[in-house]
Nucleic acid binder design. Structure first.
Lengths: 145, 145
DNA sequence: GTTCCAATTGGAT
DNA sequence: GATCCAATTGGAA
């Protein structure tokens, strides 16, 4: 398998860069955007669809999560793998979402929007809860069919 | 009881006004700061202690709540009077904090910091939860004494 | 001692 | 259908 890697800073598209330049990586002529130090990547094509100016940070979080995780992962994992303090010994502990990818998404969004990490974490928590409910409803629907 | 009321816009102190002018009201030579349209007031002396520049909005929320409500009210009321969705039929519904005063605090903080109301609401929710726990701990301590 | 945080939930939007 | 929200909790910061 032949591949060449070059890392450099570049402006891909004005629409994606209202707040910073991007670090990109090229693999076999394919351009990927690096989200953070964990080297989480997003295909250029996908990243260019992000209009950070108009998008709320919560939506950016959800779209990045959807790019880097499957619906199943989002529905079954948590950020911390900790039990809910309100349901200790009641609800099963969920495994942790890959902290590298989550960390890169966290930092990327926090920097893009210049907001606190804890706000991004909150958005992730809600997104995961919604993914879980979506899956649950889907199963319930299939059962009644 | 003799009193004169004049309402006008005035700068009280630079430290309180990095983001706006204030509306104040004078009652018997005492100056009160109006927080919002609900006419919730804070004594000038107290308001002048607020250094909004340095204070986080969450702290401003807590201090205003403490000025306008008793610890008992904060410990026993909620913003919405709704049950927790996670404990429906399990936990008793708490009465609603006076929505006029809460509304004025909400708007005042949101405007001062130019942040979303929902962020302020979140801070209020946390503050009420903490007030409840503080009261609970105090009672437990008294019981063991 | 005070403040902040994330997991869970059903409903509202 | 997707997104947002507040009440509850114990522990972390």
């Amino acid at each position: 398998m032949k591949f060449a890697i070059k890392s450099f800073r570049i402006s891909i598209s004005p629409i994606c860069n209202f707040n910073s330049t991007l670090t990109v990586i090229i693999i076999d002529s394919e351009l990927w955007v690096l989200l953070g130090a964990g080297c989480t990547t997003v295909p250029r094509r996908e990243y260019e669809k992000f209009d950070f100016r108009r998008m709320k940070y919560t939506i950016a979080v959800r779209r990045l999560l959807n790019l880097k995780f499957t619906k199943e992962e989002l529905a079954t994992h948590s950020q911390t793998a900790k039990e809910s303090p309100a349901f200790i010994g009641v609800k099963a502990r969920k495994p942790q979402l890959d902290p590298v990818r989550v960390g890169d998404i966290r930092l990327h969004v926090a920097q893009k929007y210049n907001i606190d990490i804890s706000l991004v974490n909150k958005a992730i928590t809600v997104a995961l809860a919604d993914a879980r409910k979506t899956k649950k409803r889907k199963i319930e629907k299939e059962d009644t069919d």
